[in-house]
């Protein structure tokens, strides 16, 4: 069944993204420069420019389910080269936030899981505990021996610590975690 585009407000998703982060996907002329330069595009289900097109055409579910938004390494190549100065990496980031907020099944579960564990490490310690992070991630994704060969190498070099580094006053960090909002309304352009 082809998607019927005009069943709802065709501008709805575009306006949602605009309201959340102040980036107007309708400015995109689909030149494809973001896709041309994206170092991860090979692995993506959809090119970055296609994600922008989904926003333009109100294909919300399709955009949010794509692994593209999770694979984006936020290297910002697309953003700095966009002829319309659209912050494409910022839009990918916003789409990830929407997924998290709404509990949408992430298009790449491993990356989503890793970022979650990473964040928990900060929540608990105030700093990232790299060894614990990798171990937890490997357990969570059921690949206990992933990079097992690297562990001893890095240990041998003294690059991994056995115990986590912690901040002494964790209260403000915890406060930030419990109070922070997903989106901050963008400032109106002057």
């Amino acid at each position: 069944m082809p998607e019927i585009l005009n069943r709802g407000d065709i501008h709805a998703f575009k306006n949602e993204v605009l309201a959340l982060i102040g980036q107007d996907a309708s400015r995109c002329i689909q030149c494809g420069k973001c896709s041309s330069g994206c170092p991860i595009a090979y692995e993506m289900e959809h090119l970055p420019s296609q994600i922008l097109r989904f926003i333009q055409l109100n294909m919300r579910d399709k955009a949010l389910a794509s692994n593209t938004i999770w694979l984006c390494a936020v290297c910002e190549t697309c953003t700095v080269r966009c002829p319309e100065s659209i912050d494409i990496a910022g839009i990918m980031d916003a789409l990830r936030k929407i997924c998290r907020r709404e509990g949408v099944m992430p298009g790449d579960k491993k990356i989503a899981k890793f970022n979650e564990i990473f964040l928990n490490s900060i929540r608990g310690n105030g700093r990232v505990y790299e060894l614990g992070l990798v171990m937890k991630y490997n357990m969570a994704t059921a690949q206990p021996f992933k990079d097992a060969l690297l562990g001893p190498v890095m240990f041998g070099k003294g690059k991994l610590k056995v115990a986590p580094d912690k901040v002494q006053d964790i209260a403000p960090v915890k406060a930030a975690f419990s109070k922070a909002k997903t989106f901050i309304a963008p400032k109106a352009k002057e």
Partner: peptide, 10 residues
Amino acid sequence: QGADTLAGER
């Protein structure tokens, strides 16, 4: 380094 947006490929 380009892309063909019609093919959806870099």
